[in-house]
């Protein structure tokens, strides 16, 4: 892993990006790493564009500003692709994982983007199937882990079980776990 891995989440309010950005950080910490997870608090309206941030490192993390040059970007809603510059600051070999029905090649054409590694997965469809609600955060974690190898799937699933077991029924937790596995399998690159 690079000295400091920075991940930026783009979503709409209500899609669970805050939870995902913190959950990934918590899982990294459980794995013995140092991490930060924080959302970019705006007016907190359901459906409004929002961002979340995760940092992971083998060393203590001292920086406390927003993430401007993320190695990885996760997009939870493909209508943001034309509304927000989701690729801003990503390096040429950066990873962009998008929740969409479209193929990575189609998205690249739409975004008019050169370089970067683009991956897509139908996380909303998976969430509806497995959880019964169109909340794509858990499957997007599965897709992110597959394409980045940041952490093991088991580490993140253990953290999800721990975090969700307080507020959710067991079948919801299990649905989230199945959704993670499916997105991990179904995410596709170009």
């Amino acid at each position: 892993m690079a000295e400091l891995m920075e991940i930026r989440w783009h979503a709409r309010g209500g899609q669970g990006a805050k939870t995902a950005s913190l959950l990934l950080a918590e899982a990294a910490a459980m794995d013995g790493k140092y991490s930060q997870g924080f959302p970019d608090y705006g007016p907190e309206r359901m459906g409004a564009p929002m961002r979340g941030f995760t940092r992971i490192s083998e060393e203590p993390i001292r920086v406390h500003c927003a993430i401007y040059t993320p190695a990885i970007v996760v997009v939870l809603d493909d209508t943001l692709l034309t509304a927000v510059d989701v690729a801003a600051g990503t390096p040429d070999d950066g990873i962009i994982v998008i929740n969409t029905l479209k193929s990575a090649a189609d998205v690249r054409g739409e975004m008019d983007l050169k370089g970067r590694r683009i991956y897509t997965v139908d996380a909303t469809g998976i969430a509806i199937d497995e959880i019964g609600r169109p909340i794509p955060n858990a499957p997007m974690l599965g897709a992110l882990l597959k394409v980045s190898g940041l952490l093991s799937l088991d580490t993140v699933i253990a953290q999800i079980k721990k975090k969700f077991s307080h507020g959710f029924r067991p079948e919801v937790v299990e649905g989230n776990v199945r959704a993670i596995h499916r997105a991990h399998e179904e995410v596709r690159g170009e």
């Binding site: 950080a25 918590e26 910490a29 991490s35 930060q36 997870g37 924080f38 959302p39 203590p60 406390h64």
Partner: peptide, 12 residues
């Protein structure tokens, strides 16, 4: 401590 920057950031 700094609002949101520290209060709402999870860290180790």
């Amino acid at each position: 401590f700094d609002g949101f920057i520290i209060s709402h950031t999870a860290e180790v």
